[in-house]
Nucleic acid binder design. Structure first.
Lengths: 326, 326
DNA sequence: CTGAAAGCGCTTACAG
DNA sequence: CTGAAAGCGCTTACAG
């Protein structure tokens, strides 16, 4: 019942060449012929097989997407954006779901994607674990695009501007009138932390570094002027909020907190967390678009696309009151 | 630099047929020859292109996975399980990310997957929206496997046993000593609700139906013997918990609450929600396995696989105390 | 045990 | 404007 090019051609008494061109509406074929071909194709519910085309053109029109941790990160939203772009452009998205712990699976997955003839690879991970398995892509001149927070240097990438995000967080606190704040300075958090410091200098306010949630209460006791906290990310912000409430602090009357990421949990009534939102699905969308530019060498492709985050105001940041003594 | 079968054959002074067989370690080829071929293939970093094979065998060894709402549901964990199974079996997983609102995108996505020659389709959705776009798969005799809470009847499917889940929820409350409970009875929730009622009968305890979170406070006032609530899912459970706390109820001292799904939020200290866990990644895993059975007609495939959920005990369910009057 | 040939479903020069 | 031919990278009968 389902029909292929050859059968279509036979039924129309035309050559496969003509039918092939007509289906793509190539004006080299007489308009009348084109219409006739397209009409029959529609009637027969003809769907072109990618295989023949791919073999011929050495382009599968499929993009690989290697994701480390779909379930534990917001990469599922990045994936959503990538899916939209791929669909728009008629590309397939072949996913490789890996975890940083499983080196063997990483290697097998990279090879599997190559075997399935993907034209390019998008990588979302943040541990630098996948890189060693990507040599085969380079050897085959298949573009690799990193789509993550911070990309390893010499690669094509679509990333979120973490420095700006860090600035926005502190700028927001400063605008609400906070003069001395705690900022996260763990080792994963270089960019945002630098942004924090830069904005603090610009606004003329004081910062104190913390590394872990468990440091917070001690630091608040020590520096009674501190009235706000810029967390590493939303989950940490929620953890801090929990600890502070348990210790008797009111949020935001005593202490304001700002998160990072705008996870769904932020809008729950228990938290109402003011935070910095990344353009999650746009990250994926642009990564696919950049990949296509590289595959089809359309535009002179931008090597490193950086998307700006933005502030989402909720209720966890307010003007500083007089902190109640504890 | 990257090499194909033909070049490998030329370099080895063998026919492509022999090389092809040798690479798959077919014993019809002399062992010595096989080793020689495999050695050179490894040295040259040969990766077999799927295209030739797929065209020849009419099997792409790629499975399509149509997901309605990766970002808003736990389908991302189902996807994870599907990815594991696919990798194990050497299959690619081509994702189609759709949303129920966008009919045009649904159709285009289904056709795109077909165009990319997927061998089978897995569908995760729960609105019955995708079904009309799946005729082309049936016409082409491509297996379609539903992987969702409730699958439309005559299809192959991998689902979670919602009736049992509903039973487990109420059985848990009964075991903790609750005698009269509120159970969710909204129209989406038939299976779990029936399970609730069945377990209540078995345990000899009373149930009162509610439909919305906003009904709860009124019902608790009206029936002062009620000491526990079985929610539709975790998010509802958290909402209820919020409302109850605001109204001055203590959880679980005054009212116990049980959720459904075991979302990550359940283990946050603010909630510590006792709940029913579905085998999320196993759903995806089995869906891929069932698809392969259907594609390769290996085993007489089971039409409808049902996975059992289980109870996860945390702190939101306890023995009933004497409810404080409000 | 190995090779020559045909073919999977397309597209792309090239003739006419 | 249309057709005959070659070919993309493999595999599968079939000969030898």
């Amino acid at each position: 019942m389902p029909v292929n090019l050859k059968q279509l051609a036979a039924e129309l008494q035309l050559s496969t060449a003509t039918v092939s061109l007509a289906l793509r509406d190539n004006p080299i074929v007489a308009e009348k012929t084109r219409k006739k071909v397209q009409a029959l194709a529609a009637e027969r519910n003809y769907i072109k097989s990618n295989l023949g085309m791919a073999l011929q053109s050495k382009k599968s029109r499929i993009i690989g997407y290697l994701i480390d941790g779909v379930t534990k990160t917001f990469y599922n939203e990045v994936l959503q954006g990538a899916g939209e772009a791929a669909l728009e452009q008629g590309y397939g998205l072949l996913v490789g779901l890996v975890s940083k712990d499983d080196k063997a699976a990483n290697l097998r997955q990279a090879n599997l994607l190559l075997e399935k003839d993907v034209d390019a690879l998008i990588v979302s991970e943040h541990n630098g674990v996948i890189a060693p398995y990507l040599k085969s892509f380079e050897m085959r001149k298949k573009p690799v695009v990193y789509c993550t927070c911070e990309a390893p240097r010499p690669h094509f990438s679509v990333t979120s501007n973490d420095f700006l995000g860090g600035e926005l967080a502190v700028k927001t606190l400063a605008e609400f009138g906070h003069k001395k704040i705690l900022v996260n300075a763990n080792s994963m958090n270089k960019q945002r932390h630098e942004g924090n410091l830069s904005a603090a200098r610009a606004a003329g306010i004081d910062t104190v570094d913390f590394k872990r949630t468990s440091d917070i209460l001690r630091l608040l006791k020590r520096y009674s002027e501190i009235t706000a906290i810029a967390a590493y990310h939303d989950t940490e912000a929620c953890d801090i909020m929990f600890e502070l409430k348990r210790a008797g602090y009111r949020i935001p009357q005593d202490i304001s907190i700002i998160g990072y990421d705008d996870l769904p949990i932020c809008s729950r009534p228990e938290f109402m967390l003011t935070t910095i939102a990344q353009q999650r699905s746009m990250l994926g969308y642009r990564a696919v678009m950049l990949s296509l530019d590289l595959i089809e060498k359309r535009n002179e492709p931008f090597g490193n696309i950086v998307l700006d985050p933005s502030v989402v105001l909720r209720e966890s940041v307010a003007r500083p009151g007089k902190r109640r003594a504890r």
